[in-house]
Design a protein around this nucleic acid. Structure first.
Length: 405
RNA sequence: GGGCAGGUACCGAAGUGGUCAACCGGGGCAGACUGUAAAUCUGCUGGGCUCCGCCCUACGGAGGUUCGAAUCCUUCCCUGCCCA
């Protein structure tokens, strides 16, 4: 049995940026309840970048909420569209991938997505199944339903167009391909980040053109990356992967700027609204220490993807290393080849991968970023005895025991 | 097909024959400080070496001119704009 319309709408609106058209969605839900028939909730997945991070989790979490309401989640692995490469946000044409690559990536995507999604009420489909079968004349028919002016309404297209950055024709086709997916699976609702709004709306238009009841759309905010400015993405290396270790996850959350703490509370840790508001107020009037708010958020996030124990361990370790400047409880050990069990410090850093080149190693040493057995060294030509294991620390968080082979 | 403007390090962007491994900004890294891997401030940011100096590689690709080229010439590739 489905919850009431109002209950459902409350859940759907929670955290969403836009739900439109709302009245249409209400009607769809009413019908769904009346006929005891779940709605088709669509989410398109881009398998060209299969490493999911907590930014993706925002929208996956919303899909999960739909599942919990009893609706059917349809995850479309865009193996075909990945060959086009959605130009979203990027000002340059993306590299295209082969179908094979994207198939493999799609599998990996699915595994990660089911960390959040339930396996029941979940259907997974690959859009190459239908897009790959379209003939050129099918494509022309599809393309005839939309105009260049309409496509140029899309913000990034028009920006690129105005500033003379190339747009290839196949990129223009991307929103249409995605819209075709909506028609194919008869989506009732499509989810996406705010950057997807345009594509989602095109889906409505194309569904109408093919005589299908148009979908409603729900857009979710784009979570900022750990730098606090750019949206989270792998290419900017400001992301927290769903599969990051507890320690990494905790540390990365602690490194976000204070200004986005409550964003993370809401969209990454999924704290309830009243709790987020309370912290917001506390931060503003100084009764809540930003560091503590961050710790709480970091713990919750680690707990979500690992466990409560893991979260506590990560917290303790963090305190130990950064607050008390002590050693982590587990330090890797590495053996290196060394003549007479002795080696120059620069060579040592390169041999262990702690520095990418000798020049870089030299810089690190001269800047005081390298400690051997907790003693600062500033001589890059220093010889290091390695018959016993030595502790090498580079920067604030790289620790390694090194010993001669 | 024709005309014009461009292609510089991770990104943006200077430089238009030697003083250029290339100004500056962003990013990244390190240090100081701290409340954290926040904020702020400072420094560094192609590689190698017998390391206060020397040697390689690098300014879209390939040739060439020159004692010497990111800078000049030829050609090829790529992009934008205008015309057809």
């Amino acid at each position: 049995m489905f919850p009431s319309v109002n209950e459902q709408m409350d859940v759907i609106r929670d955290g969403a940026i836009e739900v439109l058209p709302e009245d249409e969605l209400v009607r769809k839900i009413e019908n769904s309840i009346k006929n005891n028939k779940p709605l088709n909730i669509k989410l398109g997945a881009d398998p060209s970048r299969p490493d999911l991070h907590i930014g993706h989790a925002v929208v996956l979490h919303k899909l999960r909420q739909f599942q919990d309401l009893g609706h059917k989640a349809i995850l479309i692995i865009g193996d075909f569209t990945a060959m086009i490469g959605d130009p979203t946000g990027k000002s340059k044409t993306r590299p295209q991938s082969t179908l094979e690559e994207t198939r493999i990536n799609g599998q990996s995507y699915l595994e990660q997505a089911t960390i959040i999604l339930k396996r029941e009420n979940l259907e997974v489909v690959y859009n190459s199944d239908w897009l790959g079968k379209m003939s050129f004349s099918d494509v022309i028919q599809l393309a005839a339903r939309y105009t260049v002016a309409q496509l140029l309404e899309r913000d990034d297209f028009s920006k690129r167009f105005k500033s003379g950055i190339p747009i290839s024709v196949h990129e223009l086709l991307y929103p249409l391909a995605q819209a075709m997916d909506s028609a194919q699976i008869k989506a009732d609702v499509e989810l996406g980040g705010t950057d997807q709004k345009f594509n989602l709306i095109v889906g409505r238009e194309i569904q109408k053109a093919y005589g299908i009841e148009p979908q409603c759309i729900v857009t979710m905010p784009l979570l900022e990356g750990t730098d606090g400015v750019e949206k989270m993405s792998k290419s900017l290396d400001n992301y927290i992967a769903l599969t990051d270790s507890p320690r990494e996850m905790f540390g990365k959350v602690m490194s976000i700027p204070d200004t986005i703490i409550t964003r993370y509370m809401r969209y990454a840790a999924f704290f309830p609204d009243n709790q987020v508001k309370a912290v917001e107020k506390g931060l503003a009037d100084g009764t809540v220490h930003p560091r503590n708010a961050k710790v709480e958020t970091a713990m919750k996030i680690v707990e979500l993807y690992h466990s409560k124990q893991a979260a506590e361990a990560a917290f303790e370790e963090f305190e130990r290393i950064f607050k008390n400047k002590e050693l982590p409880d587990e330090i890797e050990e590495m053996q290196v080849e060394a003549d007479n069990a002795e080696m120059g410090l620069m060579d040592l850093l390169v041999a262990t991968g702690l520095a990418p080149s000798k020049k870089e190693a030299k810089r690190l040493i001269e800047q005081g970023g390298v400690l051997v057995d907790q003693n600062k060294t500033d001589d890059p030509f220093q010889r290091i005895q390695l018959s016993n294991k030595r502790l090498v620390k580079v920067g604030k968080r790289k620790f390694l025991y090194v010993v001669a082979k």
